[in-house]
Design a protein around this nucleic acid. Structure first.
Lengths: 227, 227
DNA sequence: TGCAAGTTACTTGTATGCTAGTAGGAAGTA
DNA sequence: TACTTCCTACTAGCATACAAGTAACTTGCA
């Protein structure tokens, strides 16, 4: 478990939530492992209460599963939940990029472009940073469309998604992701909804290929189909 | 505040969450009013802890606003959040009803039809029951498409929406809502995605009219635009 | 050896107590 | 009257204590 210092502006509960989330997404906490409230509380120098509340929030997206009187299970990578997270993102964000063509102001375009330049800069240097920038790029689009509450809901579910992306860093595909983002940006800039939609859907389609490879390579992390 | 008995299968936290939610949606707790953890805990016969956790969850959808060291503010009816909730539902469920045309089995169609018959039965008798049935109708569609996690996320946000619907019960429009549902059902039954999509969008469009009336009639409950 | 009952250690759920921060009113001052 | 300062009452955040349930181990018996 990787522990970063507590940001002074965040509450203990937020600190616990952020730390646990980051470690689950980065796979520093392994899928399928059990984590105890006390254990984490001690590591973070907190009491159980804020840790308990953080785990409660995480359990809402099913990224952890609280088993009462037993413990807290970090969920296995679950293709059904990933499918849902992906469905939600594709559906919502396809609509958003179209709207963004109308709504984006000069200032918004500048934010997107700054983000893109950072993506290009970190492309070879720091793939993990790239994942953060990727998420920020999408967040800017939510902000352009005044849909930040939707963004919160979608990103909670996207954790399932992000965890798989952590497994496929450092790959050639990163290069394509950044150029996808640029294509989406250009379409918004040109106020071309159809092009934006097409670029976005091409972008999200890449994941399907990843998943086929990863689901073979990391079987130990993948949940059995339930039925 | 209306208090129903605790269901034996639910935890104290779930009981608190359900009770508070119901009272906010039904407007038995007024928009803009302050509620204290202790106050609610006493009313429900619980300690502050499960109430605190319930309020925390509600605050994630911004239906309440926790002001640290001050209290918990039940949010005013906020047209921006309603717009977001509505956007999310329309976007997601439009995609779902199309998919449902392929995925719905005989058994699913029976569930939908049973629900519809109840809607028609309660149409004149109990408009509040109708709201519950309405939500259940939509939930069945999520279930048909195996998108229950999405359903959880969307329904959290839909509370903003449901609260406004509570204000417009007993109106002639109820009749149209039920016939809308039947149109959606028939389209799914005939496996006609285009018809399902059209029927659903017609259904959701009704809200716009409601909102215009209600926002004039209940000004005391409506938040000022922030800017 | 194999199995069953009892015990113990450990888990989360919940209650309670303490801390720190807010708001509003009382009292004092010009 | 108008303003400032202090005090009191109240809030949620958090720590801690206890309750209740689980699971694994130990013990005893056949």
């Amino acid at each position: 478990m990787v522990i970063t210092p507590k940001n002074p502006s965040e509450s203990n509960r937020e600190y616990a939530f952020r730390t646990i989330s980051e470690n689950i997404i980065s796979l520093d906490i392994e899928p399928g492992s059990m984590i105890g409230e006390q254990e984490i509380a001690t590591m973070l120098g907190l009491s159980r209460t804020p840790v308990h509340e953080a785990l409660l929030e995480l359990s809402k997206s099913k990224i952890v599963d609280i088993l009462p009187q037993k413990g807290c299970l970090v969920s296995m990578i679950d293709s059904e939940l990933i499918r849902e997270a992906r469905f939600l993102r594709i559906t919502v964000e396809t609509a958003l990029v179209e709207d963004a063509c109308e709504l984006a102001k000069e200032e918004d375009l500048r934010l997107l472009e700054d983000n893109l330049e950072l993506q290009e800069f970190y492309l070879v240097k720091d793939p993990l940073k790239l994942l953060t920038l990727d998420n920020e790029f999408h967040e800017i689009i939510y902000r352009i469309c005044n849909k930040m509450q939707c963004h919160y809901m979608v990103s909670l579910m996207s954790m399932h998604f992000d965890r798989v992306r952590s497994l496929s860093l450092h790959s050639v595909k990163d290069l394509k992701i950044v150029s996808d983002h640029r294509a989406i940006f250009e379409a918004i800039k040109k106020k071309d909804p159809a092009a934006a939609r097409a670029a976005f859907q091409k972008h999200m389609a890449r994941f399907e290929l990843d998943w086929n490879i990863i689901s073979r390579e990391y079987k130990k992390y993948i949940a059995e189909p339930s039925h």
